[in-house]
């Protein structure tokens, strides 16, 4: 066992973990933050995407011990003063989800993009979401929602 200190969604957590524990299992099973989903467990689907020290990461591809000392933001920590994040609102309003399983990762990957490119072009959104699979929506509404959220955050394009 190894002692880790990981800040998740603004709360500092000190835990004893096995080095083989994946970050996504730490979030879901140790902290009970179950909104971050596991789709594939192989790094391909992006459902488990979180923000790790300011950059998106697939939490199924990181050991919890690797995140020792780090700051993690999950889909459960992005609301702004209790209000839904602009991406959450845009996904809701533009019907960018159906079953919703991919949505936590999709929004975290999109949030990473908007942090770097406030008003992305459709091609930039597609490229940024390359590692996030959705089996329901066909992606069009997701792309529209990300662009809309970018405009809302960054002012008129």
């Amino acid at each position: 066992m190894r002692r880790v200190v990981i800040t998740v969604d603004g709360v500092v957590h000190e835990s004893e973990v096995e080095p083989r524990l994946l970050l996504v299992h730490f979030l879901r099973d140790v902290l009970n933050l179950t909104a971050t989903t596991i789709g594939c467990d192989t790094g391909n689907c992006g459902a488990c995407t979180v923000d790790l020290d300011g950059a998106s990461a697939k939490s199924c591809s990181v050991l919890a011990v690797q995140a020792d000392g780090s700051t993690v933001t999950t889909i459960q920590g992005i609301a702004i003063r209790g209000e839904r994040h602009p991406l959450q609102r845009a996904f809701h309003e533009r019907h960018a989800l159906q079953c919703g399983y991919c949505t936590p990762g999709m929004i975290m990957a999109a949030r990473d993009l908007l942090g770097r490119v406030p008003c992305p072009r459709p091609e930039e959104v597609r490229e940024a979401l390359q590692g996030n699979l959705c089996r329901c929506t066909g992606y069009q509404n997701i792309i529209a929602a990300v662009i809309a959220a970018g405009r809302e955050q960054g002012g008129p394009a």
Binding site: G43, G46, T49, L52, A55, S56, A57, K58, S61, V62, A109, D112, L113, E127, A128, Q130, G131, N132
Partner: peptide, 9 residues
């Protein structure tokens, strides 16, 4: 290589 999240790490 991979996608943005893979390239970050």
């Amino acid at each position: 290589v991979g996608d943005p999240a893979v390239r970050h790490r």
